[in-house]
Design a protein around this nucleic acid. Structure first.
Length: 464
RNA sequence: UCCGGCAUAGCUCAGCGGUAGAGUAGGUGGCUGUUAACCACUUGGUCGUUGGUUCGAAUCCAACUGCCGGAGCCA
């Protein structure tokens, strides 16, 4: 007698063998002929295992007919070829052990479709639904594929600090970190506090990017990538933003912007291919139930070259398009969402890499181009999702870096260690940041980023 | 943060000045190797909160709270 997951029971059934399968009840159908069909799911795959439970079971009347969706149980029995239409395999139970009953009048999950908005109020239970189970598996697969991609290419996985006093300028507002009891300060406004009483030095934040630290390690071991939580205190209320999200940031030494863009394209294609090959059942579910252009879009992504255009070319295309945009197209201002969407969805019908933005709208660390007007930066834009990657070649020339810092009013003494990289054996290097939840959205078709992370943190919401 | 929309039964929604409705879930009965099971009956509601208009407000108005969509910021 062996324990099997629902997935292995269905995929490689040992017909005639007695097995044990455990899971949560999805649905029960009674026959007054004296037996019930129990469908259980254990999260190992999207499909359920049908269990046939009849009244010869000692607990049939007392327990089995009182099982409702959500109840947990262990079924022991023989795997048989099913005569029913909906499945090939079923388990004829000789024993049903109930771990926990589930009261249908108070259990929030219904057999009927529950809206994603409602499910966000019960994030601790929503992984039991088909959709969130599938999201969880795809997210995990993308995580694994990320490590596999970079490890296969000889990158070192780097853990950059979560707590930092360095500010990756341009990356958004940081959460301040303190051990000072702010609640008591609010209640007692006359209490005086001193900076030196704090655990750090009042400048400690949660990281908004591991880039600057990653650069230091790239300039030592060549190729590194980070994959960790990132925090932004922006008051962003959109379907594409989280206050706490996961970001992947590769950084490569002896590389220019072109190498950077090539790596980005390879990485995105690798992730999409991996999920298509390894999560086909879940992807088919998303295509069927969530977004019926998903499969086409994923297959286009892997088979089509990402279009590369410079910012200047993109502006020309937008101006030539004769499209009435809400926001004016003008060299020197950043591309708006509607402009990005035009490029990916109308003009090129592919992922687009826009490079060489005006230096005025980009941070100090991006490498200034020879025209002295643009910097070696790139945004990777995906259809439907928008910006998924932002990256650049880093400024490795000390004199120009200092000039840029002065222009953007950055204090040199705060970046002394960053400048040491240029002082001691500087090398051309480049990197990018990819928003992990956004690639999960792209690969699942889920419209709201809050539904591709287990416990979303957004302004005014950090429940669970 | 800005613009727009929404908030009614456990869930999904209708009703939009005059006694609160449907489907579904739950209950009861019937039927069936069923599979979104089916058929009949049935329980279930301070209509988000506060204030206003009115003889009368779920319905009209205002503020607030929460959520959704779009924008900005970005990944």
């Amino acid at each position: 007698m062996t324990n099997f997951s629902v997935k292995s029971s269905l995929d490689s059934p040992l017909f005639g063998k007695t097995v044990v399968v455990e899971g949560w009840l999805k649905t029960r159908r009674d026959s007054k002929g004296g037996f019930s069909f129990l469908e259980i799911n254990d999260g190992s795959c999207l499909r359920n295992l049908q269990i046939v439970a009849d009244k010869s079971l000692e607990n049939y009347d007392a327990e089995v007919v009182n099982l409702f969706p959500g109840a947990s149980l262990k079924a022991t029995g023989e795997l048989l070829q099913s005569s029913g239409a909906g499945q090939n395999v079923e388990l004829r139970a000789t024993k049903i052990k109930v771990y926990g009953f589930c009261d249908p009048t108070s259990y929030p999950l219904q057999k009927q479709r529950v809206s994603f908005e409602k499910l966000r109020e019960v994030s601790h239970l929503r992984a039991r639904t088909n959709t969130f189970g599938a999201v969880t598996r795809v997210r995990s697969a993308l995580s694994f594929a990320t490590h596999q991609f970079f490890q296969n290419k000889g990158f070192c996985y780097l853990n950059t600090p979560i707590i930092t006093t360095s500010d990756c300028e341009g990356a958004g507002d940081a959460f301040h970190l303190t051990t000072i009891d702010l609640k008591s300060l609010i209640d007692a406004p006359n209490v005086r506090i001193k900076a030196e009483d704090d655990f750090f030095d009042l400048n400690a934040n949660l990281t908004v990017s591991g880039q600057l630290e990653a650069e230091t390690y790239a300039c030592a071991v060549g190729k590194v990538y980070t994959f960790g939580p990132t925090f932004r205190a922006e008051n962003s209320n959109t379907s594409r933003h989280l206050a706490e999200f996961w970001m992947i940031e590769p950084e490569i030494a002896f590389a220019d912007l072109n190498d950077d863009a090539t790596l980005a394209e390879e990485f995105v294609k690798y992730l999409v291919s991996y999920v298509r090959e390894n999560c086909s059942e879940d992807i088919a579910f998303f295509d069927n139930r969530i977004d019926n252009s998903l499969c086409q879009r994923l297959s286009d992504t892997t088979s089509t070259d990402f279009t590369r255009v410079t910012y200047t070319e993109a502006i020309e295309i937008l101006l030539r398009s004769n499209t009435a945009f809400e926001f004016p197209v003008d060299w020197g201002t950043d591309l708006q969402s509607e402009h990005e969407r035009f490029l990916t969805e109308q003009e090129f019908k592919s992922a687009v890499i826009v490079t060489d933005f005006p230096k005025e709208i980009k941070p100090f660390y991006m490498r200034v181009n020879d025209d002295n007007k643009t910097v070696a930066s790139m945004d990777v834009l995906l259809p439907n999702i928008g910006e998924i990657i932002g990256g650049s070649q880093r400024e490795e020339r000390m004199d120009i870096l200092k000039k840029r810092m002065a222009e953007l009013k950055q204090k040199e003494d705060e970046y002394w260690w960053y400048m040491d990289l240029r002082r001691f054996g500087t090398v051309p290097h480049a990197g990018f940041g990819l928003g992990f939840e956004r690639i999960v959205q792209f690969c699942t078709g889920m419209a709201n980023i809050r539904d591709v992370i287990p416990y979303p943190r957004t302004p005014k919401n950090a429940k669970f």
